[in-house]
Simulated scan of single mutants.
Amino acid sequence: MLKLASFSAWLLLTAFCPPLLAAENTMPLALHKAAAADDVAAIKTLIAEGAEIDARDGTGATALLVATHGNRLEAARALIAAGADVNARDGISDSPYLYAGARGHLDILKLTLAHGADLASTNRYGGTALIPAAERGHVETVETLIAAGVDVDHVNRLGWTALLEAVLLGDGGPRHVRIVERLISAGADVDLADHDGVAPLRHARSRGYRDIAALLEKAGAK
């Protein structure tokens, strides 16, 4: 009889309160949609109505990470102001901080740095935010991360530092020349070799990156 009574109560609840139940089930998705659309008004309304700010979607992403994916600055600002976790990771170990750094989303990156970004956190390759930023030629992002105190000589699971990635995966052009210059100025070890024992200078020479090689030689690289 008790089970029957409980079931009857559940039927009454679902019959008379469907809007409430539907809202509870869709709030996380709604918050993610609002973040993707950079809809600050909707974000504030959903949070005020009780939406869980760090709820995850099917990929493990929070609404803040969704906003970061799309470089939705105002959405990110509203979510961070409401307490969103800038270090919350998705299923492939991306966090808002790490993703903003890797993609050069500078304004969002600065917000994460001002709200507790874990500078020592690493991506799925074991690299800090500085390493992919250097690889992809995001000069201002590299400067920002160096100024924030990210380890310039961190080695990822591939055996590469930010300096090595700037040489190995960069194009040798002006942006990567500037990044190499910034890394050297920040004290990067110019002789720190990869897993095969090949140092940045040798990689630069083998690729014909004369300007980068000249910077490394001036810094005493061997």
Results as ranks from 00 to 15, higher is better:
M1D: 08
A5Q: 13
A5E: 13
S6F: 15
F16I: 14
C17F: 14
A22L: 14
L31K: 03
A34K: 04
A36P: 00
V40H: 08
A41Y: 02
E52N: 12
G60Y: 01
T62G: 04
L65W: 05
V66L: 01
R72L: 03
E74V: 07
A75E: 05
A76H: 04
R77N: 13
R77P: 06
L79A: 06
I80P: 02
A81V: 04
I92H: 01
I92E: 06
D94L: 05
D94F: 05
D94G: 01
L113G: 05
A120T: 15
Y125I: 10
Y125H: 12
G126D: 02
L130V: 09
A134S: 15
R136V: 01
R136G: 04
V142R: 07
I146L: 15
V152M: 09
D153T: 12
G159M: 09
W160L: 14
T161V: 09
A162L: 11
L163G: 03
E165A: 15
E165L: 13
A166T: 15
A166R: 11
L168N: 12
L168R: 14
L169Q: 14
G170R: 11
P174W: 09
H176M: 11
I179F: 06
R182L: 13
R182G: 01
D189Y: 13
P200R: 10
P200I: 10
Y209I: 06
E217L: 12
